[in-house]
Amino acid sequence: MLRTLPTNLSTDPQRAAVSRHLAQHGEALRNAASLLQGQPGEVRVLRIMSDLRTTTKLKLATRRCLVDLHRLLSLDPLFGDPETDAGPWQFLDPGSREVEDICLLADGLFALLVETGKLDDKMDVFALAVHDQDAAWTRPRPTFKRHEDTAMKYFEHLSLEEFWTRTLQEIDSFHAQTERTEEELSATERNTLLQSIARLRHDGPLADGAEDLVSRIEALLVEAVDRETLGYRGVFDGHNDPDHGAFGTVRAVPILSEQGCVLEGLLQGFRMIAAMRALLSARVDAHRQMALLKAA
């Protein structure tokens, strides 16, 4: 049984907020962390509580530990097995009470991090001060795949020349968007990205080196988004059957900083271009093969 943390020994509002939260949810957090990661998970919670007992101010190291604990509860793949890619959630029943409790604890801890962030004049990265995005996270967002499928059906009705023109226009638009990312990307990343896009536009989406350019651009954007990922939250993806219970899985949904959201938009936009390029390649190949069949 965890001892109750005193909350009235410090005038630091951030430490007081964390102490109150741990006093109320410390036992449940310890049990959840232990379920997901065993003894190392339990030690995470005990370390935070120990730090709170020995200091009168919320230390940066303690805030790091809180963020790591949130990532664990949010089923961050970082805490999986690097050899098997098995996450701590793999053996949990998505419809179980334990998973529901873990999701509630993750939401509560996220709210705590936002609260401490509002008290932080510097609003640093560990504050998770991204409250304007809360509404977007609490409701399902249309998946990129669904948007891509809808767009592909529209593109199928375009002639080959019209579709090729549309692909080039999308590349031009993406280049213009990238030029406006002075805050989200470093100068080196931005220049590399702009040069790769310009070459893809100049040589054409089906040129010999286009595949390498596409892979390079996507890898750069994925790395940039990962850098701006503050944690993960578990989201149940499925449905509840009245007779048989819940069917589905728990997905780890990234929590992004404000800059991360901009980069994620760029990444999804470029993935649309990559999908258009793949369809364009297939249509060109089909046109060529049909011409050969007719000539035979």
Rank of each mutant, 00 (worst) to 15 (best):
V250T: 14
M276Q: 13
L58E: 07
A291F: 06
R44N: 08
L292C: 10
L92Y: 00
R47D: 12
D121S: 12
F126E: 11
D76I: 05
F236Q: 12
G260N: 00
L112E: 06
M152E: 09
D285F: 04
A151N: 09
S96Q: 07
A176H: 11
R201T: 07
D101Y: 00
L112S: 05
W137H: 12
L221G: 06
G234T: 02
A32N: 08
L69N: 02
S159K: 04
S159N: 08
V235F: 01
E148F: 04
R141N: 12
T55S: 15
A252N: 09
Q259F: 09
R141V: 09
L267I: 06
F155H: 10
G269V: 01
L230H: 01
L73M: 03
L213D: 10
V214W: 00
E264W: 13
T4W: 08
M1L: 12
P40C: 12
P242D: 04
R166D: 12
C103S: 11
G245M: 02
K294Q: 15
I171L: 15
Q268M: 13
V43C: 01
P140S: 11
G95Y: 12
M49W: 04
A198P: 01
T150Q: 14
R97L: 14
T188Y: 06
R71E: 05
E42A: 15
R216N: 12
D124F: 09
W164M: 06
E148M: 12
L194G: 02
L263S: 12
E27C: 03
V262Q: 11
M272I: 06
F126D: 14
A246I: 05
A275L: 08
R190H: 15
T150V: 11
G209K: 13
D132M: 09
Q169N: 13
S186L: 11
R166W: 08
E27L: 07
A291Q: 14
R180S: 11
T62Y: 05
A187K: 09
L52H: 04
T143P: 04
F174H: 14
E115F: 01
A291H: 12
G248W: 06
V225L: 10
L230V: 07
D132F: 10
H244M: 10
P88L: 10
D212A: 15
L128C: 08
T116D: 00
S281G: 13
V235I: 14
G87I: 04
G269P: 03
L128D: 00
G41R: 02
L230F: 03
P82E: 05
R44V: 10
A32C: 09
E223F: 08
A278I: 10
F163I: 05
G260V: 02
I197V: 15
L158Q: 13
